[in-house]
Design a protein around this nucleic acid. Structure first.
Lengths: 229, 229
DNA sequence: CGATCGTTTGATTACGTTCAATCGTTGTGG
DNA sequence: CCACAACGATTGAACGTAATCAAACGATCG
């Protein structure tokens, strides 16, 4: 691992909580592995014996249904850890994970971590905090799905990619539009059309480049009920 | 608290993990309070300084939107605890809770618990387990919302109320149909119609009484894609 | 240059929402 | 005790949104 790798890694809440010695002993001489787009990291039902840190790229977490469809539950990117909770309990992964862009990902075995916790209870609190963050995100996603129309969900998604709270902004879509569509619970065709309809609110799209003229207006639109414009 | 109260309470995973001494010291001489239908337990944004154990009745957990609509995120019933994670981190409740049937609920202050954890790290692991269970449930709900039609979600809900895996079953709906509808992400009218359409699969409804002729068939229906019957 | 993949566009359909009216039950007050 | 509100649930009709099926487009890659 390069110094850069370490810097970014130690910024992740979980590693920050662990402190550098424990982190170092946990990771040892392991380095992030390169993944190609489309590679599986783990499969729904596999024994959950490790969690992951993303150094670069994007990962999708999804459920596989009997009928073959995939339902994207969440996406993660550089600087984030995922599957900590599942690993931690030593059960089985409740979903599958796959790389959606070229990526570098560090796999961290869970065995050591479980021991570390018994020695340093504060660590458990931090893991709980991480789990709670995911929990809140899922609750918000449920609210989104139940209460917002397709264009509103897209607006929310776009707003999640910007830091400013008003004024204009320009971003690059992080991954395939079809994947965004799935994440937001709609078909790619619906995504395309709904995104086009956001033009009325000052959103212009060229390839994966999205320009928003007025963040505040978009925020307003995402929050309000469908019935009023 | 009666002996019955204690029996049921100590069956909850969280209390089971704590052991009887810690549980006793945490609860002291507190007793479950009676709540009327419609009473608020806490409000989205309140400081999360306690969690709750349901001795009797049903509780809904919901988000309140700017436009006044309520989005039900989850429901809980006798023998279950809720809001542990939020309380535990000492932040604020991310949703509101309200009693939907006459109920008896025990409020447990969080301050003591946080201290107990630092003394008994295993407890943190158990709390993490509880959080993970909720996490899985939310993931499943997201899958439901994204992948299943209204009748399928109702079928899933009904199946969640029965213990058997095949054969016939008869249950009472636990609370208002309008609330079930909201929980499943649809309008009461849609619920009514969708439930009626389940008649073809051997589901007959009279008031809040639901009789299912063939659990296995219903399970099959809930899992398969909408396109095929 | 042709093949492939991701995206867009078009036409049609189906599902669920919305608005509205009705029905049945429960509970209340005259 | 009955009449009548009040509420939950159902039913009907019209509408709207998104899904589906199908085709075309554009960029990328071999």
């Amino acid at each position: 691992m390069t110094t850069d790798d370490w810097t970014i890694l130690s910024r992740a809440p979980l590693f920050q909580a662990m402190g550098s010695e424990i982190t170092a002993s946990l990771i040892g001489s392991r380095v992030p592995r390169h993944y190609e787009r489309g590679e599986r990291i783990f499969q729904q039902g596999d024994p959950a014996d490790a969690f992951f840190f993303i150094r670069e790229g994007w990962v999708k977490l999804f459920r596989e249904r009997e009928d073959g469809r995939e339902i994207v539950v969440s996406t993660f990117t550089a600087g984030e850890t995922f599957a900590e909770a599942a690993m931690f309990l030593g059960g089985r992964y409740p979903a599958s994970a796959e790389v959606v862009t070229p990526a570098r990902i560090l796999r961290v075995e869970g065995a050591g971590l479980r021991q570390a916790i018994l020695k340093q209870p504060q660590l458990a609190l931090d893991m709980l905090a991480a789990a709670f963050v995911h929990l809140k995100q899922l609750v918000e996603q449920i609210e989104q799905l139940k209460a917002q129309s397709a264009p509103q969900r897209i607006a929310d998604f776009l707003l999640g990619q910007v830091s400013a709270e008003s004024g204009p902004a320009e971003i690059a879509l992080p991954y395939d539009k079809a994947l965004i569509a799935n994440r937001l619970g709609m078909q790619p065709e619906s995504f395309s059309r709904a995104l086009a309809r956001l033009r009325e609110l000052g959103v212009t799209v060229a390839r994966d480049n999205v320009r928003m003229k007025d963040i505040a207006r978009l925020t307003e639109f995402a929050a309000r009920a469908t019935r009023d414009d």
